[in-house]
Design a protein around this nucleic acid. Sequence first.
DNA 1: ACAAATTTTTAGATTTGTCTAAATTTTAAT
DNA 2: ATTAAAATTTAGACAAATCTAAAAATTTGT
Lengths: 224, 224
Amino acid sequence: MKKLFFVTRSEENYIKTIFHLGGNSSSLIATNAIAEQMETKPSSVTDMAKKLAEKGFVNYKRYQGVSLTDFGIKTALSIIRKHRLWEVFLVEKLDFSWDEVHEVAEQLEHIKSEKLIDKIDELLGNPKYDPHGDPIPSKDGKFMERDKQLLSEMTLKSEGVCVGVKDTSAAFLKFLDKNSIALGNTIKVLEKEDFDLSLHIQMEGKELHISHQIASNLYIKKND
Amino acid sequence: MKKLFFVTRSEENYIKTIFHLGGNSSSLIATNAIAEQMETKPSSVTDMAKKLAEKGFVNYKRYQGVSLTDFGIKTALSIIRKHRLWEVFLVEKLDFSWDEVHEVAEQLEHIKSEKLIDKIDELLGNPKYDPHGDPIPSKDGKFMERDKQLLSEMTLKSEGVCVGVKDTSAAFLKFLDKNSIALGNTIKVLEKEDFDLSLHIQMEGKELHISHQIASNLYIKKND
DNA sequence: ACAAATTTTTAGATTTGTCTAAATTTTAAT
DNA sequence: ATTAAAATTTAGACAAATCTAAAAATTTGT
Ligand SMILES: [Mn+2]
Ligand SMILES: [Mn+2]
Ligand SMILES: [Mn+2]
Ligand SMILES: [Mn+2]
């Protein structure tokens, strides 16, 4: 007796946002936080919180906030899986650049067809990470967060590989492209400037200067 | 000074339906015809007709019906192009069967990204026809209706190739699959039964009996 | 031509998702 | 412990898309 609710696009977007704000665990997410993230008003969030609670996606405590139920988490992971698989598809199969995919994936993630996304997954060879280095949940909702750290937190002389970005804005991604910084690149910290926290690094053989702003938005997987 | 209106999913569905009902040419399409096709009520159609007229997609004459403007035709062709390209993609790249693609294409046709559909078109090698034999409009809205006729209208002894279906219901398509009738198959009319209008045909070498119901939903391109 | 049948439109209601402004609750500060 | 500030909810409104029921226009049949 599997209850299958129709989930609207708006509901899906709220569920996804709550998940990204940490609404897994049992921590309560504040109304204002959701409103700010979704560029909507707190009163709209309250209305939706009630509806999502009604449908079993969240636990809602008046004046306290919401947290996702197990069902809500499962739903969120399914949407995120679709979003990230579509992003891989756009980059791998249609030559989109990594700064163009998010907007389109925001639409594609709402397409309702289990077979479609399973086939896309298969076509792509069951990728584990999306173009920004974020992990792709499997069909049954499991995924591994990669062992990684921000470049800004790496110790002097340590080496590693670029595996992800924290800021996924088109502006940042284009900046990385312009400076030939890409996921998969090898990296070594040559020098750290105490004054402005900027770094002198070696990337794929070439030496490069990196501001703190950049270093604190690049994820590195340390060697061994 | 290109005016770019936001077109809602619902508006797109109305525009597409009006086109399919023959709303190109200057013929007026009746409110009831649209309502029936869309499984909605005439009063809803009237409301939408006003909105579509407001936005420049249709000419609307009270109590007479609607016809698409040039802009409306252009919009309809763009939606149909997307629908049919996605259907080809699902069949060619994801191994969907031709009876499964329509439902998903109904969703995908509303994805808004010019680059996406152009890249899909390119990936597929600019196909001219969809899995049901229907022509795919080009980016600039041109398309060729194929020279074809219903099997039921073919003369005795004439030969040809299966190029399309009139009834695109999953039930009919599955029936064709079961009987190994597929687009591209060669066909020759061996005998016509006056009594029930059934046909005796040769398809890809094998002899077959075909009811009038089937014959009047299969398009054939006659040889030479 | 004119009454009857059909089609279409209008009027008013409903649902979803949003907003503003006011009221309420919680949290922070003195 | 009060008061002030911040966060949250409620109340009431609105736009989009739909519906039902009633009114109006058109078409049809004799
Ligand atoms: Mn994204
Ligand atoms: Mn991503
Ligand atoms: Mn179709
Ligand atoms: Mn088709």
